[in-house]
Amino acid sequence: MKILLAEDDPKVASFITNGLSENGHSVDHVTDGREALTYCLYNSCDLAILDRMMPGMDGLSVVRALRAARNQTPVLFLTALADVSDRVEGLAAGADDYLVKPFHFSELLARVVALSRRHKDSPEAPVLIVHDLSLDLLARTARRQGQVIELQSKEFALLEVLMRNAGRVVTRTMLLEQVWNFNFEPNTTVVETHVSRLRAKIDKPFDLPLIHTVRSTGYSMHGPR
């Protein structure tokens, strides 16, 4: 899943981002409520995790603005405001779930999975398709020509980024940022290693390659042209 995290505490944000990434999710992090609203309005994501007390715009205002714009991105409030009235106010504003800090990461992960299942049958259920390859972001399954392809968590996240950007060049730096949350690691070969493993699973067993190297730049995913 592609998840937006709006959290202004750097330690909490790092803890959540690392945990979700280790479980195969792609996380984009912002620290301001206005950034969160702009992101959800102009980018596609499967879930937004919002703090209620943020600079720029509070979480309640973000959710109300999203729902007023008919944006149905699932929202999970993660906040220190723990009174029953706070929970009721958050859900009434349009949030889908509410979790109080401090929290156990296992519970946060379980709620993320539950929200995924809840929205699985909606008209916007996220299934990415490139040629004869499909990636179900909720069931976390990949299929090519009807065959199930077993992927490790980072392979799944890498494939998701490539398929979301099908037909466009995805740079090595973009992959490091979105899959591994590295800002700049010039000497690492983690991207090349994982792309090679991914190709062995989704390209080599089939006649037509879908992952193409763009020399000195990165990769592009597309079918026949």
Rank of each mutant, 00 (worst) to 15 (best):
S216A: 11
A157K: 04
T17L: 09
V62N: 06
F105P: 01
I202P: 04
N165Y: 05
T193R: 15
A139W: 01
H222L: 12
H119R: 12
S134H: 08
F156I: 06
S44E: 11
F105D: 07
L78D: 06
A200K: 12
L135N: 01
K154F: 10
M54I: 07
L50M: 06
P102S: 09
D58T: 11
R164P: 13
R87G: 07
P186V: 07
R52T: 13
L5C: 05
M221T: 11
G167W: 14
A65C: 01
G24R: 09
F103I: 08
S85H: 14
I129K: 12
D9S: 05
Q147W: 02
L4D: 00
C40F: 01
D58Q: 13
L198H: 06
L76K: 05
S134G: 11
Y42H: 14
L115N: 09
D51S: 03
I3G: 02
S14M: 14
D136Q: 02
T79V: 05
Q72C: 12
D121Q: 11
L47G: 01
R168F: 15
R140C: 00
G94N: 03
L138I: 14
E150N: 10
P55Q: 08
A139P: 08
A114Y: 05
D121C: 08
K154Q: 14
R117F: 04
D32Y: 00
G146E: 02
Y42I: 04
S106E: 15
N43G: 06
S220V: 11
L41A: 01
E192V: 15
H194I: 05
D8N: 10
R199M: 09
R70I: 04
I129S: 13
R199Q: 15
H194W: 14
N43Q: 08
L133W: 05
D58A: 09
K120M: 06
N183C: 03
S26E: 08
H194K: 13
L128M: 00
M174P: 00
P74H: 05
G223L: 10
Q178Y: 12
D28H: 14
S122T: 14
G223D: 10
V62D: 01
C40P: 00
L198A: 02
A13V: 08
R117P: 09
D46G: 13
S220C: 14
